[in-house]
Design a protein around this nucleic acid. Sequence first.
DNA 1: GTTTTTACCTATTGACTTAGTGGGTAAATA
DNA 2: TATTTACCCACTAAGTCAATAGGTAAAAAC
Lengths: 134, 134
Amino acid sequence: MISTRGRYALRVMIDLAEHTDEGPIPLKEIAERQGVSKKYLEIIVKELVGGGLVEGASGRGGGYRLCRRPEDYSVGEILELTEGSMAAVACLEKGAETCPRAGECRTLPMWAEYDRLVRDFFRSKTLAELIRTE
Amino acid sequence: MISTRGRYALRVMIDLAEHTDEGPIPLKEIAERQGVSKKYLEIIVKELVGGGLVEGASGRGGGYRLCRRPEDYSVGEILELTEGSMAAVACLEKGAETCPRAGECRTLPMWAEYDRLVRDFFRSKTLAELIRTE
DNA sequence: GTTTTTACCTATTGACTTAGTGGGTAAATA
DNA sequence: TATTTACCCACTAAGTCAATAGGTAAAAAC
């Protein structure tokens, strides 16, 4: 299940993309528009800054802005950054030691197939596809 | 992320399918074969019994057995029963009240598409496809 | 140069979930 | 009657989630 962390992150990115021509957007504005706690968004946006997806500017007239064009972000990278692993099962997690049963495991191939399916789905979706264009 | 609950449930079902000609299989045997706590499996198998996927027989010579042929179980129904919701996001959960933002939500269509993808994947996989046939 | 506005930082919390364990009772067979 | 099995209820330690609290640093406006 995708948690609020990843979902809010995505909504922040969409909000930034839709207001990209207004200069830096204060988090307060985003929080109000999205109806979400600003304090909680701080934590999430911090990860986006750390991952190099957005950049922040302090002081009056400051706020956040995207580093790239919306079509150059995949939904996958936003979710992977904010949700952590995104692996389907623990055995497939990055850095997980190989399970001793891996060779005879009846389910591992299916989990791997599922993992690819999910990964490909989100990597092929771009931020640009989600914003309102009208 | 699929938890041990659903993963163990699937392994129990596979174990039962692979030893279906040996009569009822005691949980103790399954637990030893799978290298998992028998006590924990009890909780999981209880759900499988409750959902009508397996049936148990008490007493000496008792144990668990499948109610149908392996090709008549989908992986999806096993996971949905033991994992609970399986919905991608809270907004799509069964019984969830419709989000007031649903009409203008930029992400909902994508979550719905993802939900279908995952559901179809697991519903199309059968238990028979996972068992060792050689 | 002070005030205001913004980002940025660390710590804490209550509710909930996960992955079990403990200690039994009921049923069926030998 | 003893043994083996399923079945049942309560408990727990650790971890995660969704925030909140209470600040400091930086940049612009006045």
